[in-house]
C-alpha cells in the first residue's frame, strides 16, 4: 500500500462519491414520489390503475437493476429514445425503488387503525383530506423503518450504474485498477467512500425513525 497514491486518488474518488450521492439521492426522491403515487392508487383500489401498478411492482421487483439499466441505456435508443448516463441511472433507481417505496408506504397505510379514517370521515373530511391529514402522517411514521432500509439499499444499488458509463465510485475504482494495477489503494478508497456516504445515513436514519415514531405515537 502506498499512502501517497491514496492522496493522489482522493480527488478522483471524491468527485465520483459526489456523483454517486447525487444520482442516488435524486433517484431516491423520484422513487418516493413514484412509490407514494402507487401506494395511494392501491390504497383507494382505483380500478384499472390498480392492475397497472401491480404489474409495475412485479416487474420492478423481479428484474435486476442491471437488466433495467441495460434496457434504458441500450434498449430505448432502438426506439429512438436516447437518455444520458446520469438520466438512465436516476430513472433506473426510481423504477426499482418506486416499487419498494410503494410497498413500504402501503404497509404503513394498512397498519393505521381503521378507527382513524372512520372518525375523520365522520367529521366530514373527504377521503383525500382524511388521507392527507390523518392517515398518511401516521402511515409514514409506521413505514419509517422500511423506508430507511430502502434508502440504504438504493444507495448501495448505485454501484451497478457504472455499466451505463456513469463515472461513479465503482467505475472509478475499476478504471484505476485496470489502468494502474493499484488494486489495494483503489479498493481501500472504494470501501472507505461507501462507508463515508452510508454510515451517517444509517446512523441518522435510526435516530430519525425514533423521532418520527415518537412524534406520531409517543413510543
Amino acid at each position: 500500500m502506498e499512502p501517497e497514491l491514496l492522496g493522489e486518488y482522493l480527488p478522483v474518488f471524491a468527485r465520483a462519491a459526489w456523483l454517486t450521492l447525487w444520482v442516488g439521492l435524486t433517484g431516491i426522491v423520484c422513487a418516493v414520489v413514484v412509490g407514494l403515487a402507487c401506494a395511494v392508487v392501491q390504497h383507494f383500489r382505483v380500478p384499472f390503475a390498480r392492475q397497472l401498478v401491480s404489474a409495475y411492482i412485479e416487474l420492478s421487483r423481479n428484474t435486476p437493476l442491471v437488466v433495467q439499466l441495460f434496457f434504458l441505456y441500450f434498449g430505448l435508443p432502438k426506439l429512438g429514445i436516447v437518455l444520458s448516463s446520469a438520466t438512465c441511472a436516476i430513472v433506473g433507481l426510481a423504477f426499482l425503488g418506486g416499487s419498494y417505496m410503494a410497498e413500504a408506504i402501503r404497509s404503513g397505510l394498512e397498519a393505521v387503525d381503521d378507527g382513524q379514517s372512520q372518525s375523520a370521515l365522520a367529521l366530514g373530511l373527504s377521503r383525500g383530506l382524511t388521507l392527507r391529514h390523518v392517515v398518511l402522517p401516521q402511515a409514514v411514521a409506521l413505514a419509517m423503518p422500511a423506508f430507511t432500509a430502502n434508502i440504504i439499499f438504493l444507495i448501495k444499488e448505485t454501484s451497478v450504474v457504472s455499466i451505463v458509463a456513469l463515472p461513479d465510485l465503482m467505475y472509478v475504482a475499476k478504471d484505476l485498477i485496470g489502468t494502474d494495477y493499484n488494486t489495494r489503494e483503489a479498493l481501500t478508497l472504494l470501501v472507505a467512500f461507501y462507508l463515508v456516504i452510508l454510515l451517517p445515513i444509517s446512523l441518522g436514519a435510526g435516530k430519525l425513525e425514533k423521532k418520527v415514531r415518537y412524534a406520531a405515537f409517543g413510543s
Binding site: 372512520q118 372518525s119 375523520a120 365522520a122 367529521l123 366530514g124 390523518v134 402522517p137 406520531a216
Partner: peptide, 21 residues
C-alpha cells in the same frame, strides 16, 4: 355528498379515535 352530511351529523366512537399525531 356524504362529507357535507357528516359535517352536520356528529359521531363519537367507543375508542375515542383521537388523532395521535
Amino acid at each position: 355528498s356524504w362529507p357535507a352530511i357528516r359535517a352536520k351529523v356528529g359521531m363519537v366512537f367507543q375508542k375515542y379515535d383521537l388523532f395521535p399525531h
